[in-house]
């Protein structure tokens, strides 16, 4: 507790709710985002992550509850709030008719920043996004990873204190993801507060100091990735595949052998602190899985425990 007293909440939400007609997209959530931290909203599609992001960006008005961003009220201080924020939308939404550098300059101009000032800022951001050589290409002609980096560079043009990233690495190949993570780490080192949504547990583990797990508009759990795993899962997981039609029958036999057991359509998950020992015991008992794997628990397991469903389906 003493820690949170010292920290400054840059975003504060209490009973935050958003309804579209009869549909409740965000259902009374409470959270704080502290300055300088990297905060993640983890959950499957439709969990309410993007809606929450939109309310923070003040382009979507909450239905009820409280929300302040840097102490400001989004309902009537939208432009002021957005001047503090960098926004990297889900599908990049680059200005495809414009060149790379023009994308940055025009976006800076929307904030009213002077051309002369932007000139040096744009160079700096091109460098940061590793796009200096691509400056004169149309945004449309860049690869997926480059487009995402351009979207991030664009989000940084107003020197924001808080950068909001909606699924920053969805659709990127592993190499492009790692480059992107590296860039985000650097921003964090510079003191930028990161708020990101993701449905990739490895991304949340890599990037986030603290996460909230969302499902159906509600917060299911909150904490650091390590805390959540400790609290909601075991140290290790044994994954066994016996074939689609056999998994269910075998699962019944395995009951009681581990702390917890989850039966998924394609595999059985056994939660234990001693994975190798459990696997050996199972093999010794005469069961022959098609494939077997011992791994560390991840946020995916936390999510499964909390909701009974997998994150990515």
């Amino acid at each position: 507790m003493s820690k949170s007293v010292e920290r400054e909440a840059v975003i504060r939400a209490r009973s935050l709710t958003k309804k579209y007609k009869d549909f409740v997209a965000v259902d009374g959530i409470d959270f704080d985002v502290y300055r300088g931290e990297s905060f993640g909203l983890l959950g499957p599609n439709g969990a309410g992550k993007s809606t929450t992001m939109k309310m923070i960006t003040s382009v979507s008005q909450r239905t009820s509850g409280e929300l302040t961003i840097l102490g400001k009220e989004p309902n009537n201080q939208g432009p002021e709030i957005r001047a503090h924020l960098g926004v990297v939308p889900q599908k990049d939404m680059l200005d495809r008719e414009l060149k790379v550098w023009e994308n940055l300059v025009t976006y800076g101009r929307y904030f009213g920043l002077p051309r002369k000032w932007l000139k040096t800022k744009v160079e700096e951001l091109l460098e940061f996004a590793q796009l200096t050589e691509k400056r004169n290409e149309k945004a449309d002609d860049l690869s997926g990873g480059m487009q995402r980096r351009l979207a991030i560079a664009r989000g940084l043009i107003n020197e924001p204190e808080i950068l909001l990233l909606d699924e920053p690495t969805t659709g990127l190949d592993p190499q492009a993801r790692h480059i992107l993570w590296d860039r985000l780490f650097r921003l964090k080192e510079q003191g930028v507060t990161l708020v990101l949504t993701t449905h990739y547990m490895d991304e949340a583990e890599q990037l986030c100091d603290r996460i909230i797990v969302m499902d159906k508009g509600k917060i299911m759990a909150e904490g650091s990735p390590a805390e959540l795993i400790r609290k909601y899962s075991s140290k290790e997981v044994v994954e066994l595949r016996f074939g689609t039609d056999k998994n269910e029958g075998v699962a019944k036999q395995l009951e009681g052998k581990s702390e917890r057991i989850e039966l998924l359509p394609d595999r059985i998950l056994l939660y234990t602190d001693k994975g190798e020992a459990l696997l050996t015991a199972i093999l010794d008992s005469g069961l022959h899985p098609v494939t077997s794997l011992v791994r560390r628990s991840s946020l995916e397991d936390v999510f499964l425990r909390l909701t009974g469903r997998t994150l990515v389906d």
């Binding site: 201080q77 432009p79 002021e80 001047a83 929307y110 904030f111 009213g112 107003n158 020197e159 924001p160």
Partner: peptide, 30 residues
């Protein structure tokens, strides 16, 4: 810590004092 006053923020806050600032920032030219 003090909230950072960047150029973009200074511009937006100056404008915010005017009525209708949440709908019109006076930058249609951009």
């Amino acid at each position: 810590t003090q909230t950072l006053i960047t150029q973009a923020v200074a511009i937006a806050e100056k404008r915010a004092k005017r009525p209708g600032a949440s709908v019109y920032s006076g930058r249609a030219m951009t």
